[in-house]
Amino acid sequence: MLTIPGRDLASARTARHYVRDTCRSWSLPGGTTDDLVAVAGELAANALEHTDSRTVTVTCALTADTATVGVTDDGRSAGTPVMSASTGGTEVECEGGRGLLITDALATRWGTWRSDGGLSVWAEVAIEATS
């Protein structure tokens, strides 16, 4: 588990490094690692940008077939994440709001849960087979 400072988008980089190091310690394949790192960066950036959380916590979990990353804010968010923050407009106009779209594309499944401790967004990635 890693706790990063909130309200600072640079903390997303720290989250990505933490997830990459964790995946390497688990000897996960490169593709799985890359997907988890990308998802972690997107989830952390969402929490950092769209909440007033003082801290954000990043967790990783491993099973035989999947690896999961979770990002939890401290409950100061405006609401539950939505799939797309933008509707309509050109690709350039819709530059923001892609974090959960990227997560949806890379993850086997993902979801949210709210508790007294904040909002958690998690994503599970299947571990790719190695030859």
Rank of each mutant, 00 (worst) to 15 (best):
I4S: 07
G6H: 03
G6E: 03
G6I: 12
R7F: 11
D8H: 13
L9V: 15
L9C: 14
A10Y: 14
S11R: 07
A12T: 07
R13G: 15
R13L: 14
T14R: 10
A15I: 11
R16L: 14
R16I: 15
Y18C: 06
Y18S: 04
V19N: 05
V19I: 08
D21V: 11
S25G: 07
S25Q: 08
S25R: 01
W26T: 10
L28T: 03
L28W: 00
L28M: 03
P29S: 09
G30Q: 10
G30C: 09
T32G: 05
T32M: 08
T33E: 08
T33F: 09
D34T: 12
D34Y: 11
D34R: 11
D35H: 03
V37Q: 01
V37C: 07
A38G: 09
V39N: 07
V39A: 01
A40E: 06
G41F: 00
E42F: 06
L43A: 00
A44E: 02
A44F: 00
N46Q: 09
A47R: 00
E49P: 00
E49V: 12
H50C: 08
H50V: 10
T51A: 03
T55Y: 03
T55P: 02
V56R: 04
V56T: 06
V56P: 01
V58K: 02
C60T: 01
A61Q: 00
A61E: 06
L62I: 08
T63K: 03
T63N: 02
D65M: 04
T66F: 05
T66Q: 05
T66G: 06
T66S: 08
T66R: 01
A67P: 04
A67T: 01
A67Q: 05
T68L: 06
G70C: 02
G70A: 04
G70Y: 00
V71H: 01
D73A: 07
D73L: 02
D73H: 05
D74I: 05
G75I: 03
G75P: 05
G75L: 02
S77A: 11
A78E: 09
A78F: 10
G79C: 02
T80W: 08
P81V: 03
P81K: 04
V82F: 13
V82C: 11
V82K: 11
M83Q: 12
M83N: 14
M83P: 15
A85R: 11
S86M: 15
T87H: 13
G88V: 03
G88T: 02
E91V: 14
V92T: 14
C94Y: 07
E95P: 13
E95C: 13
G96L: 15
G96C: 15
G96P: 15
G97C: 12
R98T: 13
R98I: 13
